[in-house]
Structures are given as structure tokens and as C-alpha cells.
Design a protein around this nucleic acid. Structure first.
Lengths: 222, 222
DNA sequence: CCAGAAAAGTGCGAAATCGTACACTTTGCG
DNA sequence: CGCAAAGTGTACGATTTCGCACTTTTCTGG
């Protein structure tokens, strides 16, 4: 899969829609852990990652668990598209990258001016909704290994290099399971030759096998 | 909570938006098991329940599991609002009722004509997205009793009488767990005085306790 | 090169859930 | 009324995951 340099929503806009946003878009550095949306707080700005990805995480304090993952195929701030000013999950960067951002009010104004712009973004909202429902299914019916396989594939889709910079601790948080559980699952995937690993890194070596392992819960980004 | 007689999306529309839909809306009987959307097939019609509710169910054949629930607060066919013509889940009635329906093409035409109509419906899309993410959280982190409590509350919100017509078999399917697991969970909720039951029926007797039991995963419909 | 910290591996009993099988009870219908 | 079907209760071993604690390995900065 060839990976483009730019955010896919932005790069697919018509010239005129692009021109509508351009004046308000600002380059944004997206370092690890940067918070893009705060749980329950009004959304001030909306981000379009070019690289790296963010996690949408529910249950903030106590038992965090990821419900979605946003990379260059998407954008944050879906609530804005859908007529709300906040949502009830945290969104923060999990793999550092670059992107652009726009003030929420400027985005509102732009989508009021252009139906086709709004429409382009709503198509992504649909993709995200499907991602969330697949997460619900995976959480309900899959074993840790299967969910891990799915997650690794989704992360890989959104990163440029072959290496995923992920600790077990971190994966455990995303999947909402114990850290030793992840260690075991990683070992199993490695034994089966699907991944290679070093401290804090995982490399996918057999994508197809991982997709099988994920048991149909994985669908490629975009 | 007073329960209105009519679909909440429709009843909250402005006069002019309402007038736009009215010519195309047809009363629809919504018997148990009526299929409102088929997995992977184009959406022909969109439904607005006045009573009863539908389930959005993933994993059709093999291991079905519910990802969302649609009653008088909502509508089917969100994909249409978001610029797609199908989605990958089944939607079918789980508690019989009445409602209205509109052909998907007529709905597309109407939302093209009225931004405010589209907007009203998108607000529900946001609510549904949040419901789906909460389902993902509950599936990932909650025990059967907690998920059962959540589900009963959601169903109760969408039904008029106090009695929920639900078999354990059916609940097991919705939650994606074993049937005996539901029997146990139901017994526990009954022991704690939160529900009463008869063969095939459950009545909520202590809503507040159930909400506590659901551990924050339940949020009232609308 | 070494010390400290971060990450990963391991072990253990407890809890939750699974899959399956079977018996009992209620209900609707001929 | 009696029977079949549907719904429910129960049991049992197997599997998965949990929660916690501890050790070992690897990396990093001084």
C-alpha cells in the first residue's frame, strides 16, 4: 500500500473546498501525548494528521480503553461535523507526527458555506462509526491475541515505517487488558512468525497471517 | 420520564422541514424481527420508529452481537446521512412497534434541499456514535451483569410499558455471551431487587440501582 | 562503563466466562 | 386435557483473563 504524504481528507477535497479551508489551516506539530480533545470540554480546534496517529480513549481516569484510532485517513472533531461542540472521550496522539489544524469555528463556517466540503468529511464520519462498531464487536467477542492483531494492523496502516513504537504497557492500556496479557499475546504472535520485536518496537512480518488472526474484525483504513 | 407518542427526530423538526418530508413519509408497521437494513445491501428505505426498537447487529451469521439500539429517539439509515448507501450491519426490530418510513432517495433529496433538516438528523448520528463507543467500552471492561443492566435500561427507555418482553436466549445474543450466563446475571439482579421477572418478561423495579450496577456505561437515550 | 529506570518476562491463585449437556417448568395449541 | 415446544435452571470441566508481585533484560544518561 503506497502511503501518501498528506492527510487524505484534505488531499481529496475539490479545489474550491480546499481554497475555503486553506486560509484557516495551520501546520501543527503533533508530538506524542499531545491532547487534541479533552473529555467533556468544548472542542476548540480540529486536527488533520499527515503522519502519526491519535487514539480516542474512553474512561479517562480509571480504566482507560481505546475506542478508535485516527491517522492520516481522518480527522478529529467529528462532533463538530455532527452539530455538537464536544464529545465525551479524550483524543491524544499515540504516535508522533505532523498535520494541520483549524479552529472549530472556522470549520463550522466553512462547512456552512460548502455542502460538498461537509459531505466529504461526513464520509469519514461514517468510516469512523464503522470502526467504532468493529471495536465493540472485537471487545465483545475476541481474545487478546485477536484484538492485538487487529490493533497492530490498524496502527501499521497509519505509520510510514515498518516499525511500530509500542510498549506492552501502552498496548495493554489501548486494549483495556492486563499488561502481562499483552506480553503473552505478543509472544504468541511472534512464535507464529507474524511479527518481530525488540524492546519497545514491533515489526509486522506477515500481514496476511495477522489479518487472519484478527478474525475478520480488521478492515483496512480507508 | 414522559414518553411521547412520536418519533423524536420527526417531532422536533421545524414546520418547513417537516413539510419537506411529509409527502414521502409513510406509516410503517414494525413487527418483531422485521429487517430494516440488510448487511452489505443498499439501503432502500429509512425508518423512524414511534414505538418499539430495533437492534443494530454485527457478525450476522456466526456469532451475532449487538452494537446499537434504535428506538423513538432515532432513525435507521445513518449511512444515508453520511453519504453512503449501505452499512455492514443488520438492523432489525427487537420489540414490535409502529413508525414511519421514507425511501432513501427521497430522504437524500430532502436533506439536499434543507441544511437544517440534515443537521437535525446529524445530531442523532452523533448520539448514535456515542452509543456505539459506550458499547465498545462496556464490551471491553464490564461483567455480564453490568452489561445486562445497561441493556435493560436502554430497552426500557424505548418501550412504553414497564414490561420488557425478553428471553434469556435473546439477551445472550444481544450481549454476545452464553445463555446460562444471562440466567445467572438475571438472578443476581433479581436478588438485589433491581428487577422482577416472569417467563419471557422482565420488569425494572429499581432503576437507580440498575444505573449504579451499569457502572457508568449507561446514559439515558436522548 | 556503570547505575538507575523503563520495559519485558514469569508465576500464582482467583475470578469470570465458555461450551455443552441435561432436567425441569411453563405455555400455547390441537 | 395432554403434549410439544419454548424458556429456564443447573452442573461441570476447560479456558481465558484477572490482579498482583517479583525477576530479568535492555536502554539511557552521566
Amino acid at each position: 500500500m503506497a502511503k501518501s504524504q498528506q492527510n487524505l481528507i484534505l488531499s481529496r477535497l475539490s479545489k474550491s473546498d480546499r481554497a475555503l479551508l486553506e486560509p484557516h489551516l495551520e501546520p501543527a506539530d503533533l508530538p506524542l501525548r499531545k491532547v487534541l480533545e479533552k473529555r467533556g470540554k468544548p472542542i476548540k480546534a480540529v486536527y488533520f494528521p499527515d503522519s502519526g496517529f491519535a487514539s480516542v480513549v474512553a474512561n479517562g481516569d480509571k480504566h482507560p480503553i481505546e475506542v478508535g484510532l485516527i491517522g492520516r485517513e481522518g480527522m478529529t472533531g467529528l462532533a463538530v461535523l455532527l452539530g455538537h461542540d464536544r464529545n465525551c472521550n479524550e483524543v491524544y496522539m499515540q504516535a508522533a507526527g505532523q498535520g494541520h489544524c483549524i479552529r472549530a469555528d472556522d470549520l463550522r463556517e466553512a462547512i456552512n458555506k460548502s455542502v460538498s466540503l461537509h459531505r466529504s468529511m461526513l464520509r469519514y464520519a461514517h468510516a469512523f462509526l464503522e470502526q467504532a462498531t468493529r471495536t465493540a464487536v472485537a471487545n465483545g467477542r475476541s481474545k487478546i491475541e485477536e484484538r492485538l492483531a487487529r490493533w497492530l494492523l490498524m496502527a501499521d496502516d497509519r505509520l510510514d515505517g515498518p516499525e511500530l513504537p509500542l510498549t506492552h504497557e501502552f498496548l495493554a492500556m489501548m486494549l483495556g487488558v492486563r499488561r502481562p496479557g499483552v506480553t503473552i499475546a505478543v509472544q504468541e504472535l511472534e512464535c507464529e512468525g507474524m511479527i518481530a520485536r525488540r524492546r519497545g518496537r514491533i515489526v509486522i512480518t506477515d500481514r496476511e497471517a495477522l489479518e487472519n488472526m484478527s478474525n475478520g474484525t480488521y478492515v483496512s483504513a480507508d
